[in-house]
Computed example of a mutant assay.
Amino acid sequence: MIRNRQILLASRPQGEAGLDNFSLVEQDLPGPEELAEGQVLVRNHFLSLDPYMRGRMNDSKSYAAPQPLGAVMLGGTAGEVIASRNPAFQAGDSVVGMGGWQEHFVVDASQRGVLNKVDTRHIPLSAYLGAVGMPGVTAWYGLTQIIRPKAGETVVVSAASGAVGSVVGQLAKARGARAVGLAGGAEKCRYVVEELGFDACIDYRQHPDLASLSQALKAACPDGIDGHFENVGGLILDAVLLRANAFSRVAMCGMISGYNGEPIPLQYPQLILTNRMKVEGFIVSEHMELWPEALKELGGLVATGRLKFRESVAQGLEAAPEAFLGLLKGRNFGKQLVKLV
């Protein structure tokens, strides 16, 4: 048997999530000799921490079923096959899947898509949870399928230094558009402009009210806003609507400003009509038919160094809850991971 450590959802948050909502437990898993036909035993090297997990901690109606109480926290993982009774996988293979917040997991890999082999010769294993994984495909889909920028147009991205936003801006630039980011703090804004190549970045912490933030957007987007990739909502979305051009497009990816249950009022919804705007929400897992196209572009850009990304890495399984809570408050820089080996 293999002794496996796991983090479970112990209780549902009332408002803001806290460390007491999680518990660390140990469980015995079958050893290599005890695997059933078709099963694969994986040692996780990295856990992915993502904002969507906060919504699933609530017992409320959403696009996905709530995270079950007393069960391993759901989430993406990247790791190595330790043992296999499946002809498609061999010990030593690098793989990604939804292994959850635990050190090992056993999966029936006969089900298509539950475990995927990845090539780490030119792309680091961790990148398959970020720029060449779900966050990267999320960025690609929202930009290419909803915003569809033309050369010379202006695309604004909230949470621009994060795992999703950083990719959106770089893909927009590659298509000849201007990219303007919003991020929290001068250091993140410097990174967005100097390393990622955005045309401008606004530190939203310096603009705590709508008039100030709208003025900053006007200065950064003198020709208005043609496309917006929304990860935050609230004040940022209000300010964008005030600067949006006719026939502008908004990809609604996340609304982290309301993840603790706060209402997110919209001050001027009439601008959607006035400007004949397209506002579309999307869930990237509902568009699996486009993932191969997205991953081909993202993988090629990362392998050749043309798509840059940054990672915040917490060490050890027990660090996952605190790192996750920090992610919700914007303490991470780039993609938030937990390293287990």
Rank of each mutant, 00 (worst) to 15 (best):
residue 163 A to C: 00
residue 119 D to Y: 05
residue 117 K to Q: 11
residue 101 W to P: 00
residue 95 V to D: 10
residue 124 P to V: 04
residue 154 T to G: 04
residue 127 A to K: 08
residue 107 V to D: 08
residue 101 W to F: 07
residue 169 G to T: 05
residue 87 P to V: 06
residue 82 I to F: 04
residue 160 A to N: 07
residue 112 R to H: 14
residue 96 V to Y: 07
residue 160 A to H: 11
residue 111 Q to C: 07
residue 124 P to D: 10
residue 118 V to L: 02
residue 113 G to Y: 07
residue 164 V to L: 05
residue 142 G to D: 00
residue 113 G to E: 03
residue 113 G to R: 05
residue 100 G to E: 02
residue 119 D to N: 14
residue 160 A to V: 07
residue 162 G to S: 13
residue 114 V to R: 04
residue 112 R to V: 14
residue 140 W to E: 09
residue 139 A to S: 15
residue 110 S to F: 08
residue 139 A to W: 07
residue 117 K to W: 00
residue 93 D to I: 01
residue 82 I to M: 14
residue 163 A to S: 15
residue 159 A to L: 06
residue 129 L to E: 09
residue 127 A to N: 01
residue 132 V to W: 10
residue 151 A to W: 06
residue 131 A to E: 08
residue 149 P to R: 02
residue 99 G to H: 01
residue 75 G to R: 04
residue 91 A to P: 14
residue 159 A to G: 13
residue 161 S to W: 07
residue 83 A to E: 10
residue 116 N to G: 15
residue 143 L to E: 06
residue 89 F to P: 12
residue 139 A to Q: 13
residue 128 Y to C: 04
residue 143 L to S: 10
residue 90 Q to C: 04
residue 132 V to I: 12
residue 85 R to I: 05
residue 128 Y to E: 10
residue 97 G to F: 02
residue 78 A to Q: 02
residue 114 V to T: 12
residue 109 A to Y: 13
residue 155 V to Y: 03
residue 144 T to P: 04
residue 104 H to T: 03
residue 162 G to M: 12
residue 105 F to V: 01
residue 135 P to Y: 06
residue 135 P to E: 03
residue 146 I to R: 02
residue 161 S to L: 10
residue 103 E to W: 04
residue 169 G to S: 10
residue 97 G to R: 03
residue 106 V to W: 12
residue 74 L to F: 08
residue 86 N to Y: 13
residue 91 A to F: 05
residue 101 W to C: 01
residue 97 G to P: 01
residue 164 V to W: 00
residue 123 I to G: 04
residue 74 L to M: 14
residue 90 Q to N: 05
residue 109 A to H: 10
residue 136 G to N: 11
residue 124 P to I: 11
residue 164 V to G: 00
residue 124 P to T: 08
residue 153 E to R: 13
residue 102 Q to R: 02
residue 100 G to A: 09
